[in-house]
């Protein structure tokens, strides 16, 4: 996104940006899966089309319940293996005083 001082960029900035991009992709994937499945299986149907999976309408099961469970697992994996811990740094002096922008 930039050519300014890229070499000296704080590692936490880099890892945060990388993680944010992955998260945005996961969100996009969830949107496409969920809305795509529900739109193709669940809109403007008749009573005879109703199929249930464990009591859920099939389009809700495949379009919301399954992706929700998948996202819960992905979230765990993401937190456990992809998010890097790092030093957040110290507060600036006495914060009862105004910060740098004062």
């Amino acid at each position: 996104m930039s050519d300014y001082s890229a070499d000296n960029t704080d590692p936490l900035v880099r890892s945060s940006l990388r993680e944010a991009l992955i998260v945005a992709l996961i969100w996009l994937g969830a949107l496409i899966w969920s809305v795509g499945v529900c739109a193709s299986m669940g809109y403007n149907r008749t009573e005879q089309d109703l199929k249930l999976v464990w009591g859920f309408p099939d389009w809700i099961f495949w379009g919301v319940v399954v992706p929700w469970l998948t996202c819960a697992v992905v979230s765990w994996l993401f937190g456990a293996f992809f998010v890097h811990d790092g030093e957040l740094g110290q507060d600036l002096g006495d914060t009862d005083d105004l910060g740098l922008g004062g």
Binding site: V23, I26, W27, A30, S34, S75, F78, G79
Partner: peptide
């Protein structure tokens, strides 16, 4: 349904 990704977003 989007709350499925709220924990990571």
């Amino acid at each position: 349904g989007s709350y499925m990704v709220v924990p990571i977003t």
